[in-house]
Computed example of a mutant assay.
Amino acid sequence: MMTPNLVMREGGEIVSLGGDSPYKVMTFNTCNDRNCPVDGALSDPTGIFFNDGNFNGPSGDVPSQDDTIVFNIPVTDGSTLRLTGNQPSQGFYACRTIYNFYPVNEDGQFVPGGTFTLVRETGSQLEGFSLAPRGHIRDGLTGNFAGTIIGLDYTWEYFPQGVEIHDYPAANCANFQGCLPINPGSPNTTTTTTTTSRTTDGGLTVTATTTNSITITKPTTTTITENDGTTVTVTDQETVYINDPWEDEWKKKKKWGKKGSKWEKDDSKWGKDDSKWEKDDSEW
Rank of each mutant, 00 (worst) to 15 (best):
S268W: 14
K252W: 14
D248G: 05
W256V: 06
K258M: 12
K253G: 05
D273V: 01
K279S: 08
W263N: 05
K269L: 13
D274A: 10
K251A: 11
G271K: 00
K258S: 15
W270E: 03
G271S: 04
E278T: 03
K254P: 01
S261P: 06
K279F: 04
D267Y: 02
K254L: 04
D267M: 02
W256N: 06
D273I: 00
K255R: 11
W250S: 07
K252S: 12
K262I: 08
G260C: 02
W263L: 08
W256G: 00
K259S: 14
K272D: 15
D273H: 00
K253F: 10
W250D: 08
K272N: 12
W256K: 02
K269T: 06
D267K: 05
G271C: 01
W256R: 03
K253Y: 14
D267N: 06
S275F: 06
W250P: 03
K272H: 10
K269Q: 11
S261T: 15
K258F: 14
S261F: 09
K254M: 06
S275Q: 10
D281K: 10
K262S: 11
E278D: 11
K255Q: 09
S268D: 11
E249V: 14
D266T: 02
D266E: 15
W263E: 10
K252F: 13
K254I: 04
G260D: 02
D274R: 07
D267F: 02
D280K: 07
K251T: 15
K252R: 10
K265D: 15
E264R: 12
D280G: 00
G257P: 00
K279D: 08
G260W: 00
K262H: 13
G257A: 04
E249T: 06
D273C: 02
K265Y: 07
S275W: 12
W256I: 06
S268K: 09
K262D: 14
D266A: 07
K252D: 15
W277N: 00
K269M: 09
S261V: 13
G260M: 03
D281G: 01
D281P: 01
K262L: 15
K259L: 15
K276S: 08
K259M: 14
K265M: 06
K251M: 12
S275R: 03
D274K: 09
D267T: 00
E278M: 03
K253V: 05
D267S: 04
W263C: 01
K252G: 07
K255S: 09
K253T: 08
K255G: 04
K265I: 07
W277P: 01
K258H: 12
E278R: 05
D281W: 08
E278W: 04
S275M: 07
D280W: 05
D281V: 07
D267I: 01
K251H: 13
D273A: 05
K254Y: 04
G260T: 02
K253A: 10
E264W: 10
W263S: 07
W250I: 13
W277D: 03
K276R: 09
D281A: 14
K265P: 02
W270T: 02
